[in-house]
């Protein structure tokens, strides 16, 4: 929303909407919608057993698996993984296992206050 309106009507920052509600596009990820806190189980990969078949990369609806081409290993994005476990289900060599999120120290992205 243009500066003039915001000042004139004293619109707080979190309610400011750009002209026509048109947003600049994101480039790498959409930080406005962190979904890692949905997860109750976490996919954990055994890099030794991984054959880099890329199934986890291809089948993740949230684009949380990628190939690190330099290191030749899969990397996982904890901020957005919802814990659906499609990756575990589709792994042909069973190198991804589901681990309870509570096993991890500070693993779950918690909300600051309850709803």
């Amino acid at each position: 929303m243009s500066k003039k309106y915001c000042e004139k009507f004293n619109i707080p920052k979190h309610l400011q909407v750009p002209l026509g509600a048109v947003l600049p596009a994101n480039k790498k990820e959409n930080k406005g919608m962190i979904t890692g806190n949905w997860r109750t189980v976490r996919p954990v990969i055994d890099h030794e057993a991984c054959t880099l078949c890329l199934n986890c990369f291809l089948f993740c609806p949230d684009a949380t698996w990628h190939l690190d081409e330099k290191e030749e290993k899969m990397v996982w994005n904890a901020d957005y993984c919802k814990g659906c476990l499609i990756c575990e289900n589709e792994c042909p060599v069973d190198c991804i296992s589901a681990v309870n999120e509570l096993e991890f120290k500070g693993g779950v992205v918690r909300l600051e206050k309850p709803f």
Binding site: N26, K28, E29, N30, K31, W38, A63, D79, G83
Partner: peptide, 8 residues
């Protein structure tokens, strides 16, 4: 990109 409210 990652970061959407679709279901698991």
């Amino acid at each position: 990109l990652p970061g959407h409210r679709t279901c698991q």
